[in-house]
Structure formats: structure tokens, C-alpha cells
Write a protein that binds this DNA or RNA. Structure first.
Length: 277
DNA sequence: ATACCGACCTGTCAGC
DNA sequence: TGCTGACAGGTCGGTA
């Protein structure tokens, strides 16, 4: 499901929806895979915490918590904590009314003071939940904040296919399979091109394409390929703007050549063999 | 150090 | 109808 635009959409929706609310109690399911922090630590951090807001860091949703109230009288040195959620492939963070039916594969429910609930649902359990008191940081650069010089430097002397480099979260945090393919198509670069072999002009086009694709996708509320929905359960619309991803065999929107699908490092890659060099 | 590959999970869909 | 295999927005650890 979620790459940068989808995670950004979820985070914005959460921030709008539950900022200012507080967590009354927490229920955690029995399937342990999604928990990076111990269940007891997640529950104790969340319970009683005020919700300051939510934001995106790479592909992570970070929910900022005010935990000062819980330490009243003990002069806390640090009054904030973070609930960090990675949605994996099929994870959802949903704001639900308390009476709403509980979907299968619901792994965490945070009951809010307002009577609503924040729920984490994840059929494949590739998602990850953790709490942190230190400022959470992505390992790679933010694709929408990085300057061109730094962006270009990430790929210099790299022998790996540019598609793999775009998916490497240690270089850029947030780009996934859809937006890597769409960016490379718009930049006219084949996914198998060695990253280090790109000319400065091609790097510039790739930089511009990445920015453009991500911004357009955020504006469209992300891509709903099968089941992605935002915090309110709404689907995105950017899947209708995909020009290569999921379009194997379809005519290229620019030249009508059939779009090809190949496998690079175990992930499918889609491209136009004529437009992309 | 770098890069590929299978593993981790469940659900869906095409093909037989 | 029902089985099987391929595939899915992501990341990790092991291996070469």
C-alpha cells in the first residue's frame, strides 16, 4: 500500500482528525509481528497521552504525544513521546467510532477521550508499531526536501540499477515501487540503467520528475491500487495517473509502444522501451 | 561494502 | 467449484 504520498495523506488526515484528543486506553491484539516495541511499553506510553499531531517521516507515520500529564509532580525532563507506525504493505490507520465493527486483522485499538478510536489494521502484518522518546529520524534524505546537489550525489559512482537506488530507503526515504517507476518514465530513464551512469541532465530530469510525481500524488490523495485508504477510509485517485505501473502491455501514453514489465531485484519494474533510455 | 534473494504474511485473481 | 501458483504498495537478514 503505502509510499510517501499515501503515508503523507494518512498523517495529514490523522492530524486533522485527532489532534487535541487524548488516549484513554489501549487494546493490543495477540499477533506479535507488528510490534517493534514491547506491547506493555506501547500501551503504557499511549495510555493517558495527549495527541499533539501526526506527521510523515519517510514512510513512517509519527504521532506526537504529550506525556507530561502522566508525570505530574515528578518534574519530567522530557514531556513528549512518539508513536511510530510503518504501514508495511497492507497497514491502515483508521479513525473509527467506538461502535464501528472491528475489521479482521485489527492489531491495536486506542480508545480516545472523545469516544472515537484510532485503529491499526494490517492483514499481512508487515507493518511495524513502536514508541520512542528520542526524536524519530529517517535514515535517508526526504525526497521533497532534498536539494539537487545532494540528490545527484546519492547516485554518483553507484553501480546498482537506478530503480534499485530509488527504492533504497537509506538514500531517499519514501519512494516505493509505484513512484520509482512513474518517476523514471517521466524522466525518460530505463529502470536498469546503472545509477552512476546517469548524465547530469538525466539526474536533473529525474529530480524534477520525482518532485512532480510525489506532489501530484499527494494532491490526489495517493494511489489506491487495491485496498489503500486514508485515516477516514477514503481512497486516493493517483492510480488513474499511472502511466507505466500496472500497465504492462498497454500502449505508452507518449508513443503507443507496449509497456514492458521486468523484474529487478525481485520487484516488478514497468517502462516504455522506446521512451526510456 | 555492495547487491541479490528468500523470508516474512494474507488475500486475490487467473488459469486449469 | 476448487485447487495451484503468481503476485501485491515493504523491509530484513543471510549469503556471495
Amino acid at each position: 500500500m503505502p509510499e510517501l504520498p499515501e503515508v503523507e495523506t494518512v498523517a495529514r488526515g490523522l492530524s486533522r482528525g485527532i489532534r487535541g484528543d487524548a488516549i484513554a486506553s489501549v487494546w493490543i491484539g495477540s499477533k506479535p509481528e507488528p510490534l517493534k516495541s514491547p506491547a506493555s511499553e506501547i500501551a503504557s506510553t499511549l495510555e493517558g497521552a495527549g495527541i499533539l499531531g501526526a506527521r510523515r517521516v519517510g514512510k513512517h507515520v509519527v504521532i506526537d504525544l504529550d506525556i507530561a500529564l502522566k508525570k505530574r509532580g515528578s518534574r519530567p525532563t522530557r514531556a513528549t513521546a512518539q508513536f511510530v507506525v510503518h504501514l508495511g504493505m497492507t497497514g491502515r490507520l483508521l479513525i473509527a467510532s467506538a461502535g464501528a465493527e472491528i475489521a479482521p486483522h485489527t492489531h491495536l485499538i486506542a480508545r480516545l477521550e472523545s469516544g472515537r478510536e484510532l485503529r491499526f489494521v494490517d492483514p499481512r502484518r508487515f507493518g511495524r508499531l513502536s514508541v520512542a522518546t528520542d526524536e524519530f529520524q529517517a535514515v535517508g534524505a526526504e525526497p521533497l526536501d532534498v536539494g539537487f546537489e545532494l540528490f545527484a550525489g546519492l547516485f554518483r559512482k553507484r553501480n546498482t540499477p537506478i530503480k534499485s537506488a530509488l527504492l533504497n530507503q537509506k538514500l531517499l526515504s519514501g519512494i516505493g515501487n509505484i513512484y520509482a517507476d512513474e518517476s523514471l518514465f517521466r524522466a525518460g530513464i530505463r529502470p536498469l540503467r546503472r545509477a552512476g551512469s546517469l548524465t547530469l541532465a538525466q539526474l536533473r530530469r529525474l529530480y524534477d520528475s520525482v518532485q512532480e510525481v510525489l506532489k501530484q500524488a499527494i494532491a490526489a490523495g495517493g494511489s489506491s491500487v487495491s485496498d489503500y485508504v486514508d485515516a477516514s477510509g477514503n481512497r486516493g485517485f493517483f492510480q488513474f495517473e499511472h502511466r507505466v505501473y500496472g500497465h504492462e502491455g498497454d500502449p505508452c501514453t507518449a508513443c503507443a509502444t507496449p509497456i514492458k514489465r521486468i523484474v529487478i531485484a525481485g520487484r516488478s519494474a514497468h517502462y516504455c522501451p522506446k521512451c526510456q533510455k
